[in-house]
């Protein structure tokens, strides 16, 4: 081979590899930059309110007093409701898809559930506000108040918007994530294990409960935490349904707020530097929470997924 062509090939290789490396590195740089920029922009608020920002419940843009507690509380409670509703249903769906559905139905039903994940969050929010909230306030919440009103969680007026409706919509939104990851993990159970269960006369449910679930436990927990990570950061659906009140109530039927809903509603109205900075700090808190939660999910799931060559 003539040396000129050889050289040009080597230069081409170096340039191509360098470009690929640059963009790969830019993913890491982007993550670091997001942290740095959010930290810098929230510095004003961090200095003004210190750590107390996290457990102060006053949010008063007029008096320039800001505390994140109502938002953090709403984010955590609405996501917790979502998890409580979504986890049993998602695992049920994953069991249905891996262990029960006839082969012909597996594909279409799995695809239909996954389509739920592709519907944009704003559609959930709008549908929730116009259709689901009136439905809840007419048919479901009066019933809850009448029969379960002795529990402080279900007191108040049947508004149709509030913590419970927001949590419920979040549940529908994260079901496809939890169920499709769980399904993939259930499929990794060696058939030999299940067959030995059936071989000693176990029923389907016994095989699922005593072989499939224990074998996949950490992966399923990872899938649940992945769903939690999604729920924590979800914005539009929650903004429509949570009611946007900077308050903390024991009742799940009362309007509340969440970090993402506060940001969506107030960010463009914040003129003063301190107000804006407090909002950015809310964003930083949300970013840190989801970072930790998603990192944890990834570690738990990675046992069941392809890790660049080795299992």
């Amino acid at each position: 081979m003539d040396s000129k062509r050889y050289d040009s090939a080597r230069i081409g290789d170096a340039v191509f590899k360098g470009t690929a490396w640059f963009f790969a590195a830019s993913v890491i740089a982007l993550m670091a930059l997001i942290f740095a920029v959010l930290l810098k922009e929230s510095w004003l608020s961090i200095n003004a309110f210190g750590l107390g920002f996290i457990w102060t419940s006053t949010w008063d843009p007029v008096a320039m007093q800001f505390g994140a507690l109502p938002s953090i509380y709403g984010t955590i409670v609405s996501s917790a409701i979502a998890i409580v509703i979504a986890v049993p249903i998602s695992i049920g769906i994953a069991i249905f898809l891996t262990e029960m559905a006839p082969k012909r139905l597996k594909g279409p039903i799995g695809a239909a559930i996954e389509l739920l994940a592709s519907i944009p969050s704003i559609i959930y929010g709008m549908w929730g506000l116009f259709i689901f909230a009136p439905f809840l306030s007419e048919h479901v919440e009066p019933f809850l108040i009448d029969y379960l009103g002795f529990i402080p969680l279900f007191t108040g007026a049947p508004l149709g918007i509030g913590m419970l409706p927001a949590g419920f919509i979040l549940a529908i939104m994260i079901i496809p994530f939890i169920s499709s990851v769980s399904r993939d993990i259930f499929q990794m159970v060696p058939p030999m294990l299940k067959e030995s269960g059936y071989g000693v006369g176990a029923t389907k449910w016994e095989v699922i409960r005593k072989i499939v679930l224990p074998y996949t436990r950490s992966g399923v927990i990872g899938a649940v935490i992945l769903g939690l990570g999604r729920a924590l950061g979800e914005t539009m659906a929650v903004t429509f349904l949570i009611g946007n009140a900077q308050e903390i109530h024991a009742s799940l039927l009362e309007p509340a707020t969440s970090i993402s809903a506060t940001l969506a509603n107030e960010f463009t109205e914040a003129v003063e530097d301190l107000y804006l900075s407090s909002l950015v700090e809310l964003g930083l808190i949300l970013f840190v929470i989801t970072f930790v939660v998603l990192g944890l999910a990834k570690l738990l799931i990675s046992r069941f997924s392809y890790q660049g060559g080795k299992f």
Partner: peptide
């Protein structure tokens, strides 16, 4: 593996925070 980990977290990062950023 760091790039994979970072992108998997960024995939699920709250989109509103990206807006703030």
């Amino acid at each position: 593996s760091v790039v994979r980990f970072t992108s998997d977290i960024l995939v699920s990062a709250p989109s509103i925070v990206i807006g703030v950023f």
